[in-house]
Design a protein around this nucleic acid. Structure first.
Length: 561
RNA sequence: UGGGGCGUCGCCAAGUGGUAAGGCACGGGAUUUUGAUUCCCGCAUUCGUAGGUUCGAAUCCUACCGCCCCAGCCA
């Protein structure tokens, strides 16, 4: 935690926990867990859950396990297991125990036999389609399976043979015997074990031919780990009666309390694992860690510090109402931490050469620049000033658009950041009328001093032509062009992708940046926050990713007219 | 038209019968060699709607209305 995060969040879950502590429940113990299924990368929605679970454990002197909910080998992989651990650690959390639901397969199996012996579970031979038909609908009750009243002996025998691999996939399942007429569909004899003979499991290999389902596995795993508060998202609210049912039937060590909260929705992106997987697999992005992805890996590569994510999660709060958080909230958190932590530098994204005609041909001045305007401890660096410099094309207009313009224009003055005041004397264009170069003069008395008798309103950044270092700069923008992709036609969400979510530009950066290391974050003055790409940047060919722009009041004013 | 949830400012969110916190966004101003940052100031007489209880209601009751989730051998 950093200073920014000292105020402890308050929310209904923390209130429940505090009340439990007050009453001495669970022997004053608080134990949570973060239970991802390793079937994809973690995204910012998971970050909310991570911050909640690990944060609660931290603040109440409890524990938090990282538990892989790995009961579906067909969709899971060791690669996801690896990536998830990396992401949780990067976010700044460390688990007490690293667990796998598959650690409990043997116990889970034994509990299933207990259920059978108690007459609370049975092997059902109905096909998948038949089970669906027998289940009924939202408004009509289901019907009991013809296999519902098999003897304990027959059920035990069949279940053991399922485990032994005697039956093909899909031929039989083990079901809990609850109530086919329940208004809660989850209670209509849910399947708790299915046969999967071929798919090797990333943790248990070929050992198992049957795999337990989520509802059955999750509550028992929680109980075996001594979890006190099992926090999950709202869509599991309907499953809570089932969660409690299993724990009541079985002789488990404890009965954790499931509490549901609203999952995060964020504007201009998607957060469903299905859609994120589709973006990756169909090549709309370059991978799970594409900087446009809302994955932890993508956000990290984009240059966002973990502290900003934690700050964001604290600020959006935890409730049961499902809303959509504006992207501005996330961007604000990024800027807030980057402003104080990122050293400043100058980079020209769209270079326009300026020749300062009254500056000596081969003179080079080493100007001193502060690495942070209000943090002296970040030190200073030196930037070479020469007769020819690049400025950004956006910082010049031959004739100013209005009186508010404070950048360079023909015949007018502007200050070069940390350097001199220059005046544009001539605009050189090519045959197409495109501006290719500017001529200017400088006022030698303006280094660190205001010019005599004039006030220069504008300051622009620049880089020496002879000393600047070329760099590829990737300008990332929101992945979708509308706040809610697929809002009115969900199957068409892909058509809402923003075709300009990535604009690559060949820029020039100040020479001090040549020694920047992958992952280093900077503020390019007047442009935004950038970080050295961890995959593609090399000392010979620097690549910077734009994390987020600076707040841009001018763009707002300019956009109004 | 079954069940489970949720409705407080444009967005997020406090509030738990005593007279609407905060953050983001937005608007205005100050300072500024980043149109950044920082700093002031403004921003819900009203809590989905309608009734009722009460000296007093966002908080309690009733009835409506709206939105979300559930019919995987996914989690």
């Amino acid at each position: 935690m950093t200073d920014r995060e000292v105020s402890t969040p308050t929310n209904f879950i923390r209130q429940i926990i505090e009340e439990d502590l007050r009453q001495g429940k669970n022997g004053g113990r608080v134990a949570t867990r973060f239970p991802p299924e390793p079937n994809g990368y973690l995204h910012i929605g998971h970050a909310k859950s991570i911050c909640l679970n690990f944060g609660v454990a931290r603040d109440y002197g409890g524990t938090c396990n990282l538990r892989f909910d790995d009961t579906n080998p067909e969709k899971e992989s060791a690669e996801y297991v690896r990536a998830i651990q990396e992401d949780v650690r990067w976010l700044g959390f460390e688990w007490d125990r690293l667990c796998y639901a598959s650690d409990y397969f043997e116990q889970l199996y034994d509990y299933a036999e207990d259920l059978i012996r108690a007459g609370k579970a049975y092997v059902c031979d109905l096909s998948q389609e038949e089970i669906r038909e027998y289940r009924g609908t939202l408004t009509e009750p289901g019907r009991e399976s013809p296999y519902r009243n098999r003897s304990v002996e027959e059920n035990l025998d069949l279940f053991r043979r399922m485990r032994a691999g005697e039956f093909p996939d899909g031929s039989r399942v083990l079901r809990a015997k609850i109530d086919m007429a329940s208004p809660n569909i989850n209670m209509r004899d849910p399947v708790i074990y299915r046969i999967r003979r071929t798919a090797p499991h990333h943790q248990t290999g070929e050992e198992w031919k049957i795999y337990p389902m989520y509802d059955y596995t999750h509550c028992i795993s929680d109980a075996l780990e001594g979890i006190t508060h099992s926090l999950c998202t709202l869509e599991f609210e309907d499953h809570r009666p089932l969660y409690d049912w299993f724990l009541e039937q079985l002789d488990v060590p404890c009965h954790p309390q499931q509490i549901e909260f609203g999952r995060l929705n964020l504007e201009y992106t998607v957060l469903s694992k299905r859609k994120l997987t589709e973006l990756v697999e169909k090549g709309y992005v370059e991978g799970w860690d594409d900087p446009r992805m809302p994955t932890i890996a993508g956000i990290r590569r984009r240059g966002c510090p973990p502290e900003a994510i934690r700050l964001f999660c604290d600020r959006i709060g935890v409730t049961k109402s499902d809303g959509v958080v504006e992207i501005a909230m996330l961007e604000h958190c990024m800027r807030e931490v980057l402003d104080t932590t990122a050293p400043r530098a100058m980079a020209v994204l769209r270079p326009l050469k300026v020749v300062i005609e009254n500056y000596p041909e081969d003179k080079v001045e080493q100007l001193t620049a502060a690495n942070h305007p209000k943090d002296e401890s970040m030190g200073t660096r030196t930037v070479p000033f020469t007769r020819e410099v690049y400025i950004d094309r956006d910082d010049f207009m031959e004739v100013p658009p209005n009186k508010k313009w404070k950048r360079l224009s023909l015949g007018e003055e502007v200050r070069l950041r940390y350097g001199y005041v220059i005046r544009c004397t001539e605009v050189i264009k090519d045959d197409q009328g495109e501006i290719v170069e500017l001529r200017a003069t400088y006022d030698p008395d303006t280094l660190g001093a205001d010019p005599a008798g004039r006030k220069v309103r504008g300051v622009i950044h620049w880089v020496s032509v002879s000393h600047g270092v070329p760099a590829e700069i990737r300008l990332y923008d929101r992945l979708f062009k509308v706040p809610i992709p697929g809002a009115d036609k969900d199957d068409d969400w892909l058509s809402d992708i923003n075709p300009e979510s990535l604009v690559v530009v060949q820029g020039v950066v100040e020479p001090s940046l040549a020694k920047a290391r992958p992952g280093d974050r900077f503020q390019f003055e007047r442009e935004g926050y950038f970080c050295v790409d961890t995959k593609d940047s090399t000392p010979e060919r620097l690549v910077f990713n734009r994390t987020v722009t600076l707040r841009d009041t001018w763009a707002k004013i300019a956009g109004q007219k």
